[in-house]
């Protein structure tokens, strides 16, 4: 707990994305996350760090685990928590995002956690509010807290990522997790590889210094970590790929395919999983996966982020 009490300051004042962050900030967040994780293992599980602070969770898109994880983190820190959920499309027709946010802020709040379908929506909050802004996902742009919890989970097992190959598998083009992960992993010196059907790999992404392969077996053999992204069942069958059956055949992770992997390969999945599509039961519940560890680390790292950013309440801009 000692390292938490000495308030180290992040260089960032808000968490909008991993892009543009420095490694020192990520290291401070991970160090603080580890301390909070210890607290989560104690019977009391709760600290008074955010007592008197009000956090609003504004979710303009469906989310179960991210919303729960944030709420859990906020309550463990003794913050007052308010939840607000609506669909982005209802926002489009009625009150504007800025008006909605200003109204909530007028009720005296300190921090806003927002998920929104449009990339950059958080910048509108930043330009119009005094609160601390945390991005819980903006379209297919960034999901920085997911990248941080993934990084925490990976570095717990592989402390030095330099030269290690991390492969993101699946739907890269519609994923907010992918872009944030790419930025975070590169800051830690990892080699980043993307694997999936060509139709789900976004244009020119190799220019970001990542490797692209369509061959899952090759990726399995050369990877130290694989992060399996969710296939959105409702979204893709059509021009992007022929069927979930074919997807599973060629890009689904199975134990047979994993037989060729190195013995210590780590399997991550940001959830929610489509068992039998991108990941099979025997992998999802197998020896290589750290999926539930990710969930626990999600709470710990979000506690760290909220806590560290709260240092700026009332005195920034």
């Amino acid at each position: 707990m000692d390292n938490i009490k000495t308030k180290d300051l992040l260089k960032i004042k808000h968490l909008l994305g991993i892009n543009g962050m420095c490694r020192e900030d990520l290291e401070l967040i991970l160090k603080t996350s580890a301390s909070f994780k210890q607290i989560l293992d104690t019977p009391n599980k709760k600290v008074a760090a955010l007592k008197g602070i009000t956090v609003v969770n504004m979710f303009f898109e469906n989310s179960t685990r991210t919303k729960l994880s944030f709420e859990m983190a906020e309550k463990r820190l003794s913050a007052d928590v308010v939840n607000f959920a609506a669909s982005s499309s209802s926002l489009k027709k009625g009150e504007t995002l800025i008006d909605t946010a200003r109204n909530i802020e007028a009720m005296k709040i300190d921090m806003v956690v927002m998920r929104h379908s449009t990339p950059g929506a958080h910048k509108m909050l930043l330009d119009n509010l005094d609160s601390i802004i945390i991005n819980a996902g903006d379209g297919a742009h960034e999901h920085p807290t997911q990248a941080i919890l993934d990084l925490m989970t990976i570095t717990e097992k592989i402390p030095d990522l330099k030269g290690k190959r991390v492969t993101l598998v699946g739907d890269i083009v519609h994923s907010r997790v992918a872009m944030s992960n790419i930025h975070a992993l590169k800051l830690y010196g990892a080699k980043v590889q993307l694997c999936g059907p060509a139709t789900l790999i976004p244009k020119d992404i190799e220019k970001l210094g990542v490797e692209v392969t369509y061959d899952l077996e090759e990726a399995i053999q050369n990877s130290d970590v694989m992060n399996i992204l969710r296939i959105q069942l409702e979204r893709h069958v059509g021009p992007s790929f022929p069927s979930l059956r074919e997807y599973h055949n060629f890009w689904g992770i199975t134990n047979e395919k994993l037989a060729k992997a190195n013995n210590d390969i780590l399997i991550l999945h940001p959830g929610p999983m489509n068992r039998g599509v991108e990941i099979d039961d025997d992998v999802a519940d197998g020896d290589h996966q750290v999926i539930l560890e990710q969930v626990l680390n999600g709470v710990a790292s979000r506690m760290a982020i909220l806590y560290l950013l709260s240092a700026n309440i009332g005195g920034i801009k």
Binding site: G139, P202, K203, D204, I205
Partner: peptide
């Protein structure tokens, strides 16, 4: 535009 920029921004591209 569909390009490296749309990829980085996660925005839907017009090729």
């Amino acid at each position: 535009n569909e390009s490296l920029s749309s990829t980085e921004l996660g925005m839907a591209g017009i090729p």
